[in-house]
Every structure is written in structure tokens, then in C-alpha cells.
């Protein structure tokens, strides 16, 4: 394992590294990248190491008008322990908590989880249900924002251009102190150190009478990318969470499953993934 590495300390340094670099990869928590590097004796690319970057828009979790800004270098552990996230975005907190193991959560970043663009990314799945925005910084210093629904373009592929880096994730907060039904369901063989076989994130806003005001539901490990189950969300809007009929629950689950086009691999068959997705979709009302 032999590779070149540059460690910018601030934004200017980062932009410079991005401008000058011809063939580079970003490293933050290295939970994926290190595995890749170990397999290669020499790498053709330079690593731009973000771990020493001292820039609050990359590193901090802050409330902003209309929601929350999560720096792409925020670790899963920081997200797990963030009180605001726990209160307002339980789906994200639970997703971060279900990730790998406590050791890995200390170093794995939310940005890495998004940019690696795995169909089974746990935090990515929660952020999809939360309808987050991705703030992208370009080597020329400009930023652009894309909705997360447009961020993933395929397995391991994103809209990020060659000289772009994900700076922050913006999570909208529709209304403070709104009643929520929000969570993350991860299905796998064991309870930690697991890559989701199927996952489901849901973030449902309720009024005082438990009527569904707005719903966000996303699925992971069931399609080439994480997907937002729009028609399923539309179906339950206006329904009452407590009195939703068995028929509607099943129709909702069927609509969620309609977004799935899972593969059969050594971890599970497509049949299993669909079957379980249906069951866990139903289970959010139980």
C-alpha cells in the first residue's frame, strides 16, 4: 500500500488542492477507502485528506434558518449524540446508530456515507426520507445545491463533478415541535457490523390528532440507488396514523415495494428483499 496524500488545513488549501490535482480521491473517515487501498500496492491517484480540514461548514452541525446544516465531515457518532437531531430527525439518528460498530461510527462521516453512493448507505437513506439538500463546493469556490433525490445517479455514482466536493447537508425542518413518527429500520443478519440487506427510513409529520400532514419514506439496498417512495407518501397523506386501515397499510407497503428493483446476491435474493420490504413498510403503522 503506497499512495500520495495532501492534507489541506483550510478552505483555501482545499480549493488549491482541488485545482491542482489531476487525479484525486477524497478521504475523510477512510472506512471504505482504506479497504480499497489495501488491495493495491500503488495507487494512480492522490488522496486529498479532509480529516485535518478546519472549516466549520465542513465540520460542524448547526441550526440554520429553516433547518439544520450538517457538515460533511460530521461523524456518525456525532450525529448519534446530537440532541437536536435526536429530537427533530429521529430517522437520521437511528440510521447513524445502526451503522457498523461504535469504533467505526467514531470515524465514518456523513459525507462519506453519501459520496460513496452505496445503495445500502444508512445515513443516506435517512437523509432521502428527510428530503435533505446537498451543498456542493467547486474548485472555483462556487457552491451549488442539489436535492438529495437528484444526488445519486447510480450505484457508486453521484452528480459530483470531477472538481467538486460535498460540503454540507441541509436538512429542512418543516415546523419546530411538530409531532413526528420517524425512524429507521435496518434488516441484516446480525445486529452490528452489518451492511443493510434492506432498509427503510420514514419521517412522518402529524398534527395534534395524529393526522398525517407530510410523509417522507425512502428505501435502501433495494434498487441501484436509494429511492424516495413518493406515491407511497402521497397515499398516506391525510390519513390518521392511529386508525389507518389494514388495506391502506398494505397498499402503502405495496407502493413502497414498487420502488424496489432489488438484485439477488450472496447476501439475499430479490424475493427476500421485496418480501421484507413489504413487511417492514407495513410495520411502521404497528
Amino acid at each position: 500500500m503506497d499512495f500520495k496524500i495532501t492534507s489541506p488545513k483550510n478552505k483555501a488549501g482545499l480549493l488549491k488542492a482541488m485545482q491542482e490535482g489531476k487525479n484525486f480521491r477524497f478521504g475523510a473517515g477512510y472506512t471504505d477507502l482504506l479497504m480499497e487501498l489495501k488491495k493495491q500496492e500503488e495507487t494512480s491517484f492522490t488522496i486529498i485528506n479532509l480529516a485535518q480540514l478546519n472549516d466549520k461548514t465542513f465540520t460542524e452541525i448547526n441550526t440554520i434558518s429553516g433547518g439544520l446544516r450538517i457538515g460533511s465531515l460530521a461523524t456518525a457518532a456525532e450525529i448519534v449524540n446530537d440532541k437536536f437531531i435526536t429530537q427533530h430527525f429521529p430517522a437520521l439518528q437511528e440510521a447513524a446508530h445502526s451503522l457498523a460498530s461504535s469504533q467505526i461510527r467514531e470515524v465514518a462521516t456523513i459525507g462519506g456515507n453519501l459520496c460513496t453512493a452505496s445503495p445500502s448507505g444508512d445515513m443516506a437513506c435517512a437523509l432521502m426520507a428527510l428530503e435533505a439538500q446537498c451543498e456542493i463546493l467547486s474548485a472555483n469556490g462556487k457552491t451549488r445545491t442539489v436535492p438529495i433525490s437528484g444526488f445519486f445517479t447510480g450505484p457508486r455514482k453521484t452528480v459530483l463533478q470531477k472538481k467538486e466536493v460535498l460540503r454540507s447537508v441541509l436538512v429542512p425542518l418543516l415546523e419546530k415541535n411538530r409531532k413526528l413518527h420517524s425512524g429507521f429500520i435496518k434488516v441484516g443478519t446480525r445486529r452490528s457490523m452489518e451492511c443493510s440487506v434492506v432498509s427503510l427510513a420514514y419521517h412522518i409529520h402529524l398534527d395534534r390528532n395524529d393526522s398525517i400532514v407530510h410523509a417522507g419514506v425512502a428505501i435502501g439496498a433495494s434498487a441501484p440507488t436509494i429511492r424516495f417512495a413518493k406515491t407511497a407518501c402521497d397515499l398516506i397523506s391525510g390519513n390518521n396514523l392511529k386508525t389507518i386501515s389494514q388495506k391502506d397499510k398494505e397498499e402503502f407497503a405495496a407502493k413502497v415495494v414498487s420502488y424496489a428493483s432489488p438484485i439477488t446476491d450472496i447476501r439475499a435474493t430479490a424475493w427476500y428483499r421485496k418480501e421484507v420490504l413489504f413487511n417492514i413498510s407495513k410495520s411502521i403503522f404497528e
Binding site: R190, R191, S192, M193, I266, R267
Partner: peptide, 23 residues
Amino acid sequence: LLMHEGKILNPNFHNYKILTASD
């Protein structure tokens, strides 16, 4: 240990699932 036509499909801890402390 999963095999197909004599080859091992999961020669790693990622897909050969030993239990963890939480199990």
C-alpha cells in the same frame, strides 16, 4: 462458507457472518 462450482464466494468477514458482541 458459500461456494459455487468449487470457488468460495465470501472469503471475508463482510459476508462470512460471525456474530458480534451485540448479538
